[in-house]
Design a binder for these strands. Structure first.
Length: 645
RNA sequence: GCCUCCUUAGCUCAGUGGUAGAGCAGCUCACUCGUAAUGAGCAGGUCGAGGGUUCAACUCCCUUGGGAGGCUCCA
């Protein structure tokens, strides 16, 4: 007999070799029907694996990530079986579960899959799933595994197996399909009720752009049709929140192929939001002791040779601009830091002056790969809310912490709660990719980790994501469909102070080398506005709304009165519009609600007589009548509540 | 940059070889209206661009611009 401990602490005895599924059946038939995988002693395994020792057991249903993972992983195998049935000879790469669904990378040989094939796959999968195929696991030797897959001609699997250690290799089979796999899987295809094959994409084998591009097939499955329907509705809603769509709808920004791809054109309303964000942040920066500077949009090529950026990114940048002067070349600035270093060097510095905080809303230009451009989130010209902190080594930790505070402060005011903080360190296996001494790297990595810990910031640590000159702490947010974007970043840099020979005089009257911190809060105004749009569906907080109110006369008879109110409000700095069309009030309300204008002011006979406006708050209905000056105070009060700095 | 797909009116989209369609937006007229769509009429497109096949191309083929979803990249 073995002892099994459940999550609630209770312990039960079972005969040795019992499976999690059998245990679930003994608890309740309903549970057995819903359970998808199990964690036994911290290892997630198949429900059908025998348990042979005293164990801690957690059963996973659909609601657990582990349950979904097994469900989707099994679905990936099922899709592979369908693909093999449809196109025999297809070679298979990898097919994992992902955050939403699963994919399989395949090499269909001469055939190239197109969108109409997705339905074929889907239907084949439905047919196979309904056969209630069981997933069975078996351990094999490396030799046997190599034999199986080389006989089959699955060269990608052979490559994967070659890198595996003998004795750790397992295969899973369902129906006519066997795959190299660690598991875990569902007991059978029975729970897979709703299937949607979503899209096709290219993906380099093993993520290496020098290797063959395989065809990646994305899909998602659910245990109930209703869940799939809900997911498809969610995707549709997310599409409606897309900042590219809302940006066009609300006339915030545009792109023109004539200007060039990835070069955003801010329209009046978008530009207004952008300016308000800059003003907002400027007030905060001044309070926090930042000095605001301005630098040109170009710099001599030698500047970037000094900084090391030319060597690293020169070939992938907008290429240098030549001048009439033989041999002279300038670059569009891809970052502001070298310019700031030269401002630092323009005056002597004492240890007493540090830390020096230098900020600039600096527009930079980067030649991003064409396939990488994406709305406002990835562009070729963008304005960073950039700053550099020049500090003594003993100040680094405190300075870093103060920036974390600043980022969290700004996010809090803006109601940005859905971020994750990510610490990016070197790739320990590729240290030669980075510049700077081992000692400085170690210290910088330690400082970041400890500063974040001291601020009680919940972080994930990722290796291999550091900048080439130093480790960093990034604040990431998700867009409407779950893609992650980096907003704020705090980066430690020992490299540029070295390259630009930055110094300060210490208390010992000797020259010392400061350390630099690069930081942004918004990241870039472009990306930040994009995220803001997707977070709010274009219903910006009142203080950011480019237009605060629109006056809606009940009929043309009241246009004169409406114009009087309009003038009064605009003179009081409440940006207001008027809708003088000869439309019914219901139509005017609808149209202006769709334009996301925060307040609709309805004026008719009643209002004209009493010298008032009827206030309707967007999305919130009638708020009753107010005098125009009361409305001005009301709006100003509301704004104050939003950004009480 | 690579893979798959898309590109038709200001916007959202029909139209798979026989000289271009709808809804919304716009304009005009009527209505003068009380909290999410009043009605009628008009106007609007060299079907992204260039080349080819064909008696005939929005439709098929090639090149190219731009876009979407991924991959790679992201100072």
């Amino acid at each position: 007999m073995i002892k099994v401990t459940f999550p609630d602490g209770s312990v039960k005895e079972y005969k040795e070799g019992i499976t999690s599924l059998e245990i679930a059946e003994q608890i309740s038939p309903r549970l057995a029907k819903e359970v998808l995988s199990a964690t036994v002693n911290n290892e997630v395994i198949d429900l059908t694996r025998p348990i042979t020792t005293d164990s801690k057991l957690v059963l996973h249903k659909w609601d657990d990530a582990e349950g979904k993972h097994a469900f989707w992983h099994s679905s990936a195998h099922l899709m592979a079986e369908a693909i093999e049935a449809l196109w025999p000879g297809t070679k298979f790469g990898i097919g994992p579960a992902i955050e939403n669904g699963f994919y399989y990378d395949i090499d269909p040989g001469d055939k190239s899959l197109n969108e109409s094939d997705l339905l074929l796959i889907e239907n084949k999968m439905k047919e196979l799933a309904s056969k209630d195929l069981t997933y069975s696991r078996r351990n094999v030797s490396k030799k046997e595994a190599l034999n199986i897959f080389s006989t089959k001609g699955d060269e990608y699997k052979v490559e994967l197996i070659t890198d595996l250690q003998d004795g750790t290799i397992s295969l899973y089979t369902q129906g006519n399909f066997t795959d190299l796999c660690r598991g875990p899987h569902l007991p059978s295809t029975e729970p897979i009720k709703a299937i949607k094959i979503l899209s096709l994409a290219g993906a380099y084998w093993r993520g290496d752009e020098k290797r063959k591009m395989l065809t990646r097939v994305y899909g998602i499955t659910f245990p109930k049709q209703k869940l799939l329907d809900e997911y498809l509705v969610f995707l549709e809603e997310a599409r409606r929140r897309d900042h590219r769509r809302i940006g066009k709808e609300l006339e915030l920004f545009t792109f023109s192929p004539k200007v060039g791809m990835g070069l955003p054109l801010w329209m009046p309303k978008g530009s207004d939001i952008r300016s308000k964000l800059i003003e907002f942040l400027t007030v905060i920066l001044r309070k926090r002791g930042y000095k605001i500077v301005a630098t040109p949009h170009i710099g001599n090529v030698n500047l970037y040779k000094t900084s090391g950026h030319f060597e690293k990114y020169g070939a992938d940048s907008f290429q240098p601009i030549s001048t009439p002067q033989e041999g002279e070349q300038f670059m569009l600035k891809p970052m502001n830091c070298p310019h700031h270093c030269e401002i630092y060097n323009a005056t002597p510095h004492s240890y007493k002056d540090l830390p020096l905080r230098m900020a600039e809303f600096g527009t930079v230009y980067r030649y991003e790969q064409s396939g990488e451009l994406h709305g406002l989130t990835r562009v070729r010209s963008f304005t960073q809310d950039d700053a550099h902190h020049f500090c003594r080594h003993d100040q680094l930790r405190e300075e870093f912490k103060s920036i974390i505070d600043l980022v969290l402060y700004v996010f809090r005011i803006l109601n940005f709660n859905e971020y994750t903080a990510q610490i990016s360190l070197r790739d320990p296996d590729n240290k030669e990719k980075y510049i700077g001494s081992e000692e400085n790297w170690e210290k910088a990595e330690r400082d970041i980790i400890e500063a974040a810990a001291e601020k009680n910031l919940e972080t994930v640590i990722v290796t291999g994501e550091a900048a080439f000159y130093g480790p960093k702490l990034d604040f990431m947010v998700k867009d409407a469909i779950g893609r992650k974007w980096q907003l704020g970043t705090i980066q430690v840099d020992y490299n540029l102070p070295e390259r630009f020979d930055l110094t300060y005089n210490g208390s010992d009257n000797q020259k010392h080398r400061p350390v630099m911190i690069h930081r942004t809060i918004f990241g870039s105004l472009e990306r930040f506005v994009a995220v803001l749009i997707e977070n709010t569906s274009g219903k910006f907080p009142l203080w950011l709304a480019p237009e605060k109110a629109v006056i809606l006369p009940i009929s043309e008879k009241f246009n004169d009165y409406a114009r009087k109110v309009l003038e009064l409000l605009n003179n009081s700095d409440i940006c207001t519009l008027i809708d003088e069309r000869s439309e019914k009030i219901g139509k005017k309300i609808r149209d202006n609600e769709l334009k996301r204008i925060p307040f609709l002011l309805i004026v008719g006979e009643k209002e004209e007589e009493s010298g008032s406006v009827s206030v309707r708050k967007q999305g919130d209905g009638d708020k009753g009548a107010m005098k125009p000056d009361e409305f001005v105070n009301f709006v100003n009060e509301e704004i104050k509540k939003e950004i009480d700095l």
